[in-house]
Each structure stands twice: as structure tokens, then as C-alpha cells.
């Protein structure tokens, strides 16, 4: 009996079921992407946000960000002075708070804000929210090349996008690019990613969002990312947001 089992296993491995070469579904690939994107227990980093207009004029903003798990993120602007201190707390179940220092208290943000541009960048609040792709989108594998998979993502709930075409690295499963299409099926935005290995994690060192209609782009550079610092859930509370 033991011998039979061993032979069966050997046949299975020889057929390729034990490694990546077997035909994966879009959903499986997307889940692997989420595992790469959210593999660390937590993250803290500084961000440099460079907004470049069509004419080439640049504005620079800086922020700090901490993230835990798949759905908790606290983002705080540190410059320019007019925005310094403005912070956004993103929690599970679409709960988002904004803290404006001039009001001295937090304010719940309605989820309709998600389709709007985030603080004058080419990213929307939805793009900035810490939420796994597989929670938000259904995936269909539409192409496989030597280097990447191409997935078509369609939103599970109401979204500003009709679909996203995502290219995903074939062996490391991080995103290479994503193209966003509006409800008229026109490509409106494009994102490119630069990933680098930091310790044992693949880290998005730069994300660039191109607004194809406006001709502008926004780069988010992640500086000094630190993973698995042991951030507690208490770091993602109103108490921390307002202090």
C-alpha cells in the first residue's frame, strides 16, 4: 500500500501538480498577489509623493504610513505645511476616518469618497485603501507569457472602474502594471510598480500612477520600509489618529 502511494505521488509530481507550472485560475493568482502584497505582518514607512502635471510642473508631498494585516492603515501627511497633520485611518468594513488638525477631532468619511482623488494626487481614495485585491475584484486569467500573467479584474461591488487589466510577475507574484478602465470601457489610468526585496519581503519601492486623460502622473516612493515591527492593533485607533 505504501509503495502504491509513493508511486502515485511520484506520478503526480511528474505531471507537474507540485509546482507552479500547473494551470492556475485567475482567482488563485490574485490571491497569491495579495499574499505578496500583504505578506508582512505590519509595515511602517515614509512616503514621498511626487505629482507631475502635464506641463512637467512638480509638487512634492511627504507622509508617513503604517499598515497592519490586510485592512488597517494609518496615513499621515508631514508636508507641505498646508496639509501637514492631515491623517486618514482605514479600517475593515470600509470604515474610514479623517483627522483635520484645524477641527481637533476625527470625522468619519462617507465611502462615496472612494472614487475621488486622494489629496490632489492621481490616486483615488479607493486606490489608497488597504484592502486585498481578491476582496474587491473577481479575476479571470486572460493571458500567460514567459514573464507574467495577465488578469482581468472586475469589481465585486460598485466601483469607478469597469475593469482592471493587471500584469503579475509569473514567479514572484507582485504586480508589474495595472490598467484601469472606466464605465465606458476606456482606459483612463495606468499604474507601474517597481518592487525590490527588503529582507524576506517584496516591497513596492515606487508606484507610479498615470492619468491618461489629464496627462499627469503621481509617483509614490516608499522610503525606509520596516516590516514586522510588531505593531499592535492599538496603533490603528482614533486615539492614535488624533495624536
Amino acid at each position: 500500500m505504501k509503495k502504491t502511494t509513493a508511486i502515485l505521488l511520484a506520478i503526480l509530481f511528474s505531471l507537474g501538480l507540485g509546482y507552479q507550472g500547473y494551470a492556475q485560475t485567475g482567482t488563485e493568482i490574485l490571491k497569491k498577489l495579495d499574499q505578496v502584497m500583504f505578506s508582512a505582518k505590519d509595515l511602517s514607512a515614509k512616503n514621498k509623493i511626487i505629482i507631475t502635471s502635464k506641463s512637467g510642473k512638480q509638487e512634492v508631498r511627504e507622509s508617513t504610513v503604517i499598515q497592519k494585516g490586510q485592512e488597517m492603515r494609518l496615513f499621515r501627511f508631514t508636508s507641505p505645511a498646508s496639509q501637514a497633520g492631515i491623517a486618514m485611518l482605514s479600517l475593515p468594513n470600509d470604515v474610514m476616518y479623517i483627522y483635520l488638525p484645524s477641527f481637533g477631532k476625527e470625522r468619519r468619511i462617507s465611502s462615496s469618497v472612494k472614487s475621488q482623488k486622494f489629496a490632489g494626487t492621481d490616486f483615488s481614495y479607493d486606490d489608497m485603501q488597504a484592502q486585498p485585491f481578491s476582496d474587491k475584484y473577481n479575476a479571470k486569467l486572460i493571458e500567460t507569457t514567459d514573464k507574467y500573467y495577465v488578469l482581468e479584474l472586475t469589481p465585486k461591488t460598485k466601483s469607478a472602474y469597469s475593469k482592471i487589466i493587471a500584469k503579475i510577475h509569473k514567479t514572484e507574484y507582485y504586480p508589474i502594471s495595472t490598467d484601469f478602465y472606466d464605465q465606458k470601457n476606456e482606459k483612463i489610468k495606468e499604474t507601474t510598480y517597481t518592487f525590490a526585496k527588503v529582507g524576506k519581503y517584496w516591497s513596492a519601492s515606487e508606484i507610479t500612477m498615470f492619468d491618461l486623460k489629464k496627462g499627469s502622473k503621481t509617483q509614490i516612493q516608499m522610503i525606509q520600509p520596516k516590516y514586522d515591527q510588531g505593531l499592535s492593533d492599538d496603533e490603528f485607533t482614533i486615539r492614535k489618529l488624533i495624536n
Binding site: 465611502s111 462615496s112 472612494k114
Partner: peptide
């Protein structure tokens, strides 16, 4: 109170 229903904020 404050909450969010159907994308709208209510308080």
C-alpha cells in the same frame, strides 16, 4: 452618532 449607508455619510 455617525455612520455610512450606501456610500453616504449620516450623522
Amino acid at each position: 452618532f455617525s455612520t455610512n449607508i450606501g456610500g453616504m455619510g449620516f450623522w
